[in-house]
Design a binder for these strands. Structure first.
Length: 802
DNA sequence: ATAGGGTTAG
């Protein structure tokens, strides 16, 4: 009599009778777990307690019923009062209390009651642990959860199917998928819920492949799919973008008669939407006899994801008009990316305002989506504000803010935020890394780049093409083309972006021929060039001064590669025309091109005007830039320098006033140089370095050797005589020269002197650097923010145009 | 008299 109920708990405790053949347990090698000895010992220990209980009289029964009522209604205050008045020896009322606390989210109380229960020697049973485990999951307390799990072995509930299913749920919620997996595999008996928990668990942690494997495997174990298995598996198909598997499950849905189930229909719409088959999703959606908010949300999300942004908004309107449904936070979370893609910050802002009015905020996912949207719409201040006000942030929120900074060119802020992230308890993931690497590429010194590389290697992320590509670019931008190439050559899965990156890497270093070579190599490997490939290629032609080749590829890109020239390609061509000194042609090109020129293109014209000292054209270009970007500091500075060189001091003062009024601050020019494990930073005229005296001595010797005076006269022919002296003085102590001087005496002779500059190198310093490379027989690499100058034997790889 | 599995963000 005693053994039966225990074995029932231990082994057969499921809703439906189990029909797992013993043979299958053997194949799982779990035979030993069914050792009957254990059952007996458990019986003997537990049985006397059962008989020791006092009889339940009608009084107690009534109170217990009242207590249950309180718990069900969530009145835990009343329940607790009543509980304290009652006799506490009954497991049932303890279970009731723990359940009640759990359901109200009072997990600490639930755990507290469990501890008290154990302390008072009350017997725990198979109903106690599910709630306790749920409370551990709710508290994110893996340590307590582990203790409870260990306790289960002691009380002989370690194979209880219900309890185990709760454990699986807990381990997955706490991110310990391995524990869930191990537990699942060691369960002698699994029911439908066990399988479904694993399928949905894998889905929840983003492992669609394992989810689908589990979905297939359960059939092998004689377990049939129910609608929840199918819903989770459809989610896995969405995750992995597997339309074929999704369609197969759709067929199964129809065969098993679930196609009218609204939850299944919603999952199908979601799956087709995510797999890029929005037409299927739409057809299913239109065929639904009734729809709930989730279904509308899935459809809205499907439209947004498939670039049908306007459809997603009209779907929102239909949802309100036809079904009279109010959008919920998920509706808007789905719509925000549509605003972002449309670049419609106003629409995004109105959603934000509405969410505040309706009390949707604070909401972690919503706020993260807002940060993302504002970032993509160029509303960086608003993104910052939302992020700053978020009370709880997760890694995704941090990633969104970092990406927002990087997308809007605020690399310094991105790097600072990344540092903050590292000092929090959060660990960066592949998304963080691929977002932050471009900021390293723009700002980091090579040794800093190497540090982040080492850090990423230590993270053991496995092969990730996003990260590898970003790393190749980073090395190239930090001046180390060899390492960039080595990483590229070592990549196993080179995609089109990898090729674009390496072509661009050689482009910015001025090795146009190699870029073109790589372009043909890529085509030979069967990789189809895209828009960005042509941008890399045309940039390379422009930077290396291969004018004819540039026109050749520009004219043939449509015919040979099926790519329409976009704004970026026109930009490359404008650069290319600019360097031929034909400013009229450049002006005509920008005026006659079929696309609306961007501020960057006018910037390219401005740079050309500066190079060839055409102040009228420069003013024309600057007008256009400032009408598009009224806060473009670089534009003001460049114009002001041109006025200064022409001796137009009133105009210089005028610009200074405008900049002050707008609160624009000129970037402090600085150069950094790498020694073995240190980055040395210099500003113009810097005297703060520990070796300042030696640096200036070296600089003196070098300048005397290269005959500085000769060329200063040659390039300052338009200037007033008193200015010649002033300017000559100031360029002599430009940060680049200080960095080069220090590099020459601190870097071993066989290595190049690698200098990174945060602005473009000036004409004087460029000439000086060429001469220095000649007289010292050293290779000097100066990376400015656009190209890398390789100075060797008196020549520069940029061909003197930058 | 007490228990579990679905849709949302990069």
């Amino acid at each position: 009599m005693c053994a039966t109920p225990l074995i029932h708990n231990w082994f057969y405790n499921t809703k439906k009778p189990q029909n797992i053949p013993r043979q299958q347990l053997q194949t799982l090698n779990l035979e030993h777990k069914l050792n009957p000895k254990k059952t007996t010992s458990f019986c003997i220990k537990k049985n006397p307690l059962k008989h020791a209980k006092p009889l339940i009289d009608s009084q107690i029964l009534k109170l217990t019923r009242t207590l249950t009522g309180y718990v069900v209604d969530g009145h835990m205050g009343y329940a607790r009062n009543l509980f304290e008045k009652m006799n506490h020896s009954d497991t049932y009322i303890w279970n009731m209390m723990i359940r009640g606390f759990c359901n109200c989210g009072l997990f600490e109380e639930a755990i507290g009651f469990y501890h008290r229960m154990v302390l008072e020697g009350i017997e725990t049973d198979n109903f106690t642990y599910p709630f306790v485990i749920k409370a551990c999951a709710g508290l994110w307390d893996l340590i307590e959860g582990g203790k409870v799990h260990a306790k289960l072995f002691k009380v002989g509930l370690d194979f209880d199917v219900y309890v185990c299913n709760f454990l699986i749920d807990m381990y997955i919620r706490l991110g310990c998928v391995d524990c869930a997996e191990r537990l699942f595999e060691e369960m002698p008996v699994r029911d439908l819920v066990s399988w479904n928990s694993m399928i949905s668990g894998y889905h929840a942690v983003g492992n669609g492949l394992s989810s689908l494997r589990c979905f297939r495997e359960m059939l092998v174990f004689g377990m049939r799919h129910d609608k929840l298995s199918m819903i989770s598996a459809l989610g896995a198909c969405s995750l992995e973008r597997f339309p074929q598997s999704g369609r197969a499950i759709h067929g199964q849905v129809i065969k098993s008669g679930f196609e009218m189930d609204i939850m299944v229909q919603t999952s199908l719409i979601d799956m087709y939407g995510k797999c890029g088959e929005v037409d299927y999703a739409e057809r299913l959606f239109n065929g639904m006899s009734s729809r709930n908010v989730e279904a509308w949300n899935a459809m809205i999300g499907g439209y947004a994801l498939n670039s049908c942004f306007l459809m997603s908004f009209s779907c929102l309107k239909r949802m309100q008009d036809i079904d009279n449904f109010n959008p919920d936070n998920i509706t808007f979370i789905n719509l925000l990316p549509a605003c972002a893609q449309l670049g419609d910050g106003l629409k995004g802002k109105s959603i934000h305002d509405y969410a505040i009015r309706k009390g949707f905020l604070p909401h972690l996912v919503f706020e993260t989506a807002l940060v993302d949207m504002y970032g993509e719409c160029g509303e960086l201040k608003l993104a910052e504000r939302v992020f700053g006000q978020m009370s709880g942030k997760n890694l995704v929120s941090w990633n969104a803010m970092i990406a927002a900074y990087v997308q809007n060119g605020q690399n310094k802020e991105a790097l600072e935020l990344f540092q903050d992230l590292l000092s929090e308890s959060l660990k960066p993931d592949p998304v963080t890394i691929s977002s932050i690497l471009p900021a390293f590429a723009e700002l980091a010194s090579l040794s800093e780049g190497m540090q982040i590389h080492a850090y990423i290697t230590k993270m053991w992320l496995g092969p990730n093409s996003f990260i590898s590509n970003a790393m190749v670019y980073m090395y190239a931008k930090c001046g180390d083309l060899q390492t960039a190439r080595r990483l590229f050559d070592g990549m196993s899965g080179k995609d089109v972006i990898s090729w674009n990156t390496i072509i661009m890497a050689y482009a910015i270093h001025g090795f146009g021929r190699i870029s073109i070579q790589l372009f043909y190599e890529m085509i030979k490997k069967g990789i189809k060039p895209n828009e960005s490939t042509l941008v890399s290629l045309l940039s390379s032609c422009s930077i290396s001064g291969m004018v004819d080749k540039g026109w050749h590829y520009f004219n043939l890109m449509k015919r040979d590669y099926g790519i329409d020239p976009g704004i970026e390609h026109y930009g490359c061509m404008l650069d290319l025309i600019g360097r031929t000194q034909n400013l009229d042609r450049a002006k005509h090109f920008i005026e006659e091109m079929p696309l609306v020129p961007t501020a960057r293109m006018w910037g390219s014209l401005l740079a050309a005007s500066r190079k060839y000292n055409d102040i009228v054209l420069a003013e024309h270009a600057a007008d256009h830039i400032l009408s598009l970007q009224h806060d473009n500091t670089g534009c003001y500075v460049l114009l002001s320098n041109m006025y200064a060189e022409a001796g137009r001091w009133e105009d210089v003062e005028r610009i200074k006033r405008v900049m002050k009024k707008k609160g624009l601050v000129k970037t402090t020019r600085c150069s950094t140089v790498e020694t073995i494990c240190k980055t040395h930073r210099f500003v113009n005229g810097d005297k703060s370095h520990a070796k300042t005296n030696i640096i200036y001595d070296v600089l003196d010797i070098i300048l005397r050797k290269i005959g500085e005076d000769t060329y200063v006269r040659s390039i300052t022919k338009f200037k007033a005589p008193n200015l010649v002296r002033k300017r000559a003085n100031s360029t002599e102590q430009h940060s680049v020269r200080l960095a080069i001087s220090f590099g020459l005496i601190s870097i071993s002779i066989e290595k190049p002197v690698l200098v990174r500059k945060n602005t473009r190198i000036c004409e004087d310093c460029h000439i000086a650097a060429k001469r220095i490379s000649e007289i010292t027989k050293r290779e000097i690499i100066v990376v400015d923010y656009k190209v890398c100058h390789h100075f060797l034997n008196g020549q520069c790889s940029c061909g003197d145009y930058w």
